[in-house]
Design a protein around this nucleic acid. Structure first.
Lengths: 370, 370
DNA sequence: ACAATATGCTCTTGATCCGAGCAAATGAAG
DNA sequence: CTTCATTTGCTCGGATCAAGAGCATATTGT
């Protein structure tokens, strides 16, 4: 078991503003130990106590546990296909400051350098309070923090430049981190096994089991787009045939409509999916069916109890809910059909990846604060 | 963090006979704390010290930590499609006694009753040393310990009868438990993410992430046979279409060869797979290809670094290794092809499920022994 | 016999946490 | 306004656990 102090910090992070008495009950300590704990964490400038709204019940009023005004902070960053952003996040997930700009077609190294400059400015402003950084990227990150984002044409981009020798440096795929955020502050709070799927240029996702994101042996788990749920005759850029991704992303829509694959697959796909014309709508319906069928297969195999959709998945669900859900239920094992795990849009939307970066970095930091 | 005593017991369970000095280094305590720990656990009749083979190196010789001769035990049971068995297992995994017999076509309730009688006899012999039971079954187990094994025609069989009101009662699917055993005492020791696949009457398996088996929201994870990697025209008994299981189990062989589906699919399939005739061999090769392709999809999605095969998967790998591995590598994402995660037979073979039952029950027990 | 090396034991110190008893702050009832 | 019930917070004594220093023990090598 982690120490009580860490447990208390985790509770306050998960539920900022929790009352002191509630927190004590949640971690199962008496009032004596609570006094000692809160005092110690207050001395360490980690927690502070604030007023509570009157509860109306009898009894001595309690206080709310909130982040200390001089407490530690985390820098959370996100790079998408069109912009980058850095937030300064305190215990509990509130954002104190933010910076960012459009990519404007710049190379990966330049973007990371610009992001690093923003981090330096924020560190100058907040000093040593900023203890680490988490970064969400639209690609894969190796153990030594080299980024590959084939969609952006970036290869071997050194993320460490954003904050060299940071004590805490967490980087991950945007879909993976969005899944993490969704499981802690989104729709998947309380789900035993949550599956998050995110369609952007490709199809990615992650499984969260008991609050822990499955990261894979190489940090490359969640590449569900490369499971062979699709047409075995279609070759995927990854080299394999029949990849699910080729049946649900923008390239599938272009193929169905006889279009040339456009440069910006995401914008193109969103336009097609939301188009009122019958031909694009039919293509979107076909793709929604392929998505539903694959989701069912994943739910069968992984026994998820909730599926959240991000990116274009949200648009597909909105545009062709019937086709998607019919294919989904038809693909479930019969014993699951009585109560199919819900398939819903992710609550955090486009903020999922950066929120997940903040969560993972905070999780890493919380194990070090005593 | 668990208490040091629990950590020490876990180390000794994972590596029985580990030297006292090595164990201390593994859990990171000094010699002083070790003296106190080993003394306390010896007093509690959990650990004993034995002689070590001379190391040849200088220095004061150390002792080996072994299970106490009057220490706690676990009953581990397994029900297969043809027999049942109970073992008495001590800390570290050694088997002290065993009992079992053929099913001989008996009903589920009778089999569980016979198993329960064997457990009672063993408890009479070993007394309160036997602290709990783990059972591996060829089917699904609900939270209230009701077993469904459609292959045996068993439904709503009450497993609790095997040991009513046992303090520790762990039951699970044979493939899931075999995966657990394989990750702790088999080929998958040290694997970050191990995928175990087991073909018997159907195709099941499990993922072990960092030593923890993914159990799913309903305890039904690992039903990879119902992911739609197969022919979308083939209907699965589960109600969906294109299930992978229908492309790799005995029914696939029967369909390819134009046979009536036989009653005992496992024996039938093993005969076909090992047949020297060209027609059965071609069918086996087709099935091996479908197996390899699906494994690649799972490795892509889950980022496993090792795949172990059990049941008929071992026979398929032996009969058509080239077809299986070619399809496997062709289905991998290109960046994985430089070093494809190995696909190997499980080390524990048919003992995997019962060994896994012992492991899971011991894991549950270790958290209670202080 | 003596040095070098590795390991085990004792004792002190400190951190953490629990629980009993008492104090404080509120709402409800008169 | 007073008193009681209720809930929460604080102080203090005691128990448990673990780290580390210093010394003791058991072996190999010279």
């Amino acid at each position: 078991m982690p120490t009580r102090a860490t447990e208390l910090l985790r509770v306050v992070h998960a539920r900022p503003g929790v009352t002191r008495a509630d927190a004590a009950r949640l971690i199962g300590v008496g009032t004596g130990a609570t006094t000692e704990l809160v005092g110690r964490l207050g001395q360490a400038e980690l927690l502070a106590e604030g007023p509570t709204a009157p509860s109306g019940a009898r009894g001595r009023p309690t206080t709310a546990l909130i982040p200390h005004p001089r407490g530690p902070l985390i820098a959370a960053a996100s790079i998408t296909h069109e912009s980058w952003r850095v937030d300064v996040v305190e215990l509990g997930g509130s954002i104190l400051a933010t910076a960012g700009e459009e990519l404007a077609g710049r190379a990966g190294d330049e973007v990371v350098a610009a992001l690093g400059a923003a981090v330096r400015r924020l560190r100058h402003e907040y000093g040593d309070r900023i203890r680490g950084i988490g970064i969400a990227v639209p690609g894969t990150v190796s153990r030594d923090l080299m980024l590959d984002a084939s969609n952006l044409g970036w290869h071997d981009v050194d993320l460490a430049v954003a904050w060299p020798r940071a004590e805490i440096f967490v980087a991950g795929n945007d879909a993976t981190l969005a899944a993490s955020a969704e499981s802690r502050r989104g729709m998947a709070v309380g789900a035993a096994v949550a599956l998050h799927l995110r369609i952007e240029a490709g199809l990615g996702g992650a499984v969260v089991d008991g609050g822990k994101v499955l990261i894979g042996a190489l940090g490359a788990a969640g590449e569900f787009g490369h499971m062979p749920f699709g047409d075995p005759a279609v070759r995927c850029p990854c080299g394999a045939y029949g990849c699910w991704g080729t049946a649900v992303d923008g390239s599938a829509l272009a193929r169905l409509l006889g279009h040339e694959p456009p440069r910006d697959l995401i914008t193109y796909a969103r336009r097609i999916i939301t188009s009122p014309e019958p031909e694009p709508a039919a293509a979107a319906a076909t793709v929604a069916t392929a998505l539903g069928r694959g989701i069912a297969g994943l739910v069968n195999g992984l026994d998820a109890d909730l599926v959240t959709l991000g990116g274009l998945g949200v648009d597909l669900l909105a545009a062709a809910p019937e086709q998607l859900l019919t294919a989904y239920e038809a693909g479930l094992m019969s014993f699951r059909r009585a109560a199919p795990p819900p398939v819903v849009p992710a609550l955090l939307g486009d903020d999922g990846p950066i929120a997940g970066a903040a969560e993972e970095a905070w999780t890493a930091l919380l194990t070090r604060l005593v």
